[in-house]
Nucleic acid binder design. Structure first.
Length: 288
DNA sequence: TTCTGCTCCTGAGGGC
DNA sequence: TGCCCTCAGGAGCAGA
């Protein structure tokens, strides 16, 4: 599933292969993929035609191609979105929803999305950030990320720490996989309250988040199936380095205890019952 | 203001 | 073989 490392891999691919080219036309095959462009698909196509792609930027899981006049083509991959750079004569993908023809015409951009949680839109930027992304916090790999502010805000939350990690207005770029991995590395149970963490624990958790995200970027992201690929259609290999996520029943790499899986926020959490002791008082909501 | 739970969506996989 | 059900989860929203 696309989290920060996967989106960064895609951004890097766009910077290499798409930046410097000009959009000549836009073909929308699925209206749901442009639903966040409120003016409609015709407006999107008309305003993008002739626009030069100046750079590829990212904040958390949002990425955007910078256009002239403070405009940006914003892309969110959702759960299954892909941005592919393909020759125009390559066969269409089954879930090809938006096609961006480019000049030079030897390559085109394709937005492909099986589950259609993602989408694209044209947006105005303010200080270089699209207005639809302005509410998203900086990610931990951003040089301007404020560690002290994050620790302060995390420790003020009366909410499960895993939910805090998934809150993109607190810290961006972390999804279910890397939240579980960082919590495992920090030996913190996801149901612990943010307010129950010591300052040292919060600082260490942030460090583990940084480590796991950085290692995943180096590996090209995490792929369990064909739902995440880079702009050339290739999968990452960080799934081979996972210690908790998807390892239910398999021994913890530290202590050997079988990894547990519990439901949380309509998804799964994977944790070690020995290394990550759950809080004594179970809350009504949260893990388990 | 903070927090929780629900909804959207499609395809794979399992059970019958 | 075909049908039905469950599961996967990012982000936004409603309601408490």
């Amino acid at each position: 599933m696309p989290e920060l490392p996967e989106v960064e891999t895609v951004r890097d691919g766009l910077a290499r292969w798409a930046v410097g080219r000009t959009i000549t036309s836009v073909q929308v095959n699925n209206l749901r993929s442009v639903r966040r462009h409120l003016a409609g698909p015709e407006d999107l196509a008309a305003r993008l035609a002739g626009q030069r792609l100046e750079s590829a930027e990212r904040r958390g899981k949002f990425l955007w191609l910078v256009l002239p006049a403070d405009l940006a083509l914003v892309v969110h991959l959702g759960m299954s979105g892909q941005v592919l750079v393909q020759p125009p004569d390559a066969p269409d993908e089954k879930h090809l929803h938006v096609r961006f023809s480019l000049e030079p015409a030897d390559l085109e951009l394709r937005f492909v999305d099986q589950r259609t949680f993602g989408g694209v839109l044209l947006d105005q930027t303010i200080d270089g950030v699209p207005s639809t992304v302005a509410h998203i916090a900086r990610d931990p790999l951003d040089p301007l990320f404020d560690d002290a502010l994050f620790v302060k805000r995390l420790r003020a939350r009366n909410s499960a720490v895993k939910r805090c990690l998934l809150d993109q207005t607190l810290v961006s770029g972390i999804g279910n996989i890397y939240a579980d991995e960082a919590l495992w590395r920090a030996r913190v149970h996801g149901e612990r309250l943010g307010a129950a963490l010591t300052r040292a624990q919060a600082v260490d958790l942030l460090a583990q988040v940084r480590d796991v995200l950085g290692e995943a970027i180096t590996a090209g992201g995490t792929s369990f199936d064909a739902l995440y690929v880079n702009v050339n259609g290739q999968s990452g290999y960080f799934d081979r380095s996972l210690n908790a996520y998807g390892r239910e029943g398999r021994p913890c790499g530290r202590c050997g205890a079988p990894i547990r899986r519990t439901a949380f926020m309509n998804r799964s959490s994977f944790w070690c019952p020995s290394c990550q002791r759950p809080p004594r008082v179970q809350r009504h909501a949260g893990l388990g």
